[in-house]
Nucleic acid binder design. Structure first.
Lengths: 185, 185
DNA sequence: GGATACATGTAAGATGTTACATGATTGT
DNA sequence: ACAATCATGTAACATCTTACATGTATCC
């Protein structure tokens, strides 16, 4: 149940389609939609060594005609692929939507290239259900707050959170429909 | 620039209006809208001791007629109040909206009871501006992705993020108007 | 030749997680 | 009496941040 660091899964998932160096991965983190991952060498290189020691990735042998710079490329191992798939196949729990949204989105982003479309759709179905329940609970708490106190930033901050949850549930429903249309029929 | 752990500010901000014990604070984390903070004793009690050592909070002397249980209440010190206010008065930067949304929302939640309403309104103005810029950049990247690839979960995951940012910017604008109406005139 | 980007790494320190330990009080 | 909850804490471990160190290749 206790999850490995999401950084390790992010690295593994990025390496899977194409061998990459630590520097490549750092660039991906700074230049793409994965900005919230740290690009600091102090997090990435140690994480790569952990993954290597665990047997999820392995260094590619260098060849003469390679990039003259000393970049060390890593590729995924069968064990790493299996770990990735197991991680993606986990059910979406209430705790996930409350405490681990970032990890859920990372999982979702990697799904289509690693698990059957049906799994992705099921993920969205579970996500929508759990998020909607949590959002409804939170909405009720918000209304209770509102009835007790006047307008102030604490209430607005909470509203910010609740609206986000409702929007996320709606996003999941819409995305599921899109994927169902795209794959079904 | 490097921020203390948000947990420490969360504890300080909660203790300010009313002295509380570690156990009280843990309950707040599990039963209110602050669910994403860990309620584990291994994080809270050490954090309280750090705050005490730093002089932001101090233990209340126990009295005979107190709760018979050995709860140790902490109250905020003048130094702690100042630290809280300094933290709340920081400007909202681009990096904040990209990397530290959780901290921003915590700051916002504590604003109305600790800084002038005008500061809260300025916070929302800055937040909206920075978030709107970041959202627009991200939206452009999303459209570029869409034009290059077909529908898949990676694109949808990114869309999830971009829509969130746009909503957050809109929330800030709406909240600012509400607060301006409530305080102005 | 010097600045900049490429590329990898280490060391110290802060923080947080998990699991365990301890004992008091309350409810049944 | 027993279980559950109240209440605080420690120890081991994992991870991440910050700052520093090192050297190469490319551009002007």
């Amino acid at each position: 149940m206790k999850s490995k660091s999401t950084l390790e899964y992010a690295l593994t998932g990025l390496i899977k389609p194409k061998p990459q160096s630590g520097y490549d991965l750092r660039k991906t983190f700074t230049t793409t939609g994965m900005r919230h991952y740290s690009d600091s060498p102090g997090s990435i290189y140690p994480a790569l060594r952990r993954l290597e020691k665990r047997g999820w990735i392995e260094p590619l042998p260098r060849r003469e005609d390679d990039d003259p710079r000393k970049r060390q490329l890593f590729s995924i191992t069968p064990k790493g692929q299996q770990a990735l798939i197991d991680w993606l196949n986990q059910p979406v729990t209430r705790d996930d939507v409350i405490f681990r949204m970032g990890e859920l989105m990372l999982r979702f982003a990697f799904m289509d290239s690693n698990v059957p479309r049906a799994t992705t759709i099921q993920f969205l179905r579970d996500f929508e259900r759990e998020m909607a329940i949590y959002a409804a609970e939170s909405r009720a708490k918000l209304e209770e707050m509102r009835s007790k106190t006047g307008l102030h930033s604490g209430v607005l901050a909470y509203e910010f959170g609740v609206e986000g949850m409702e929007r996320q549930a709606a996003w999941a429903g819409r995305s599921r429909e899109l994927l169902e249309k795209a794959s079904g029929s």
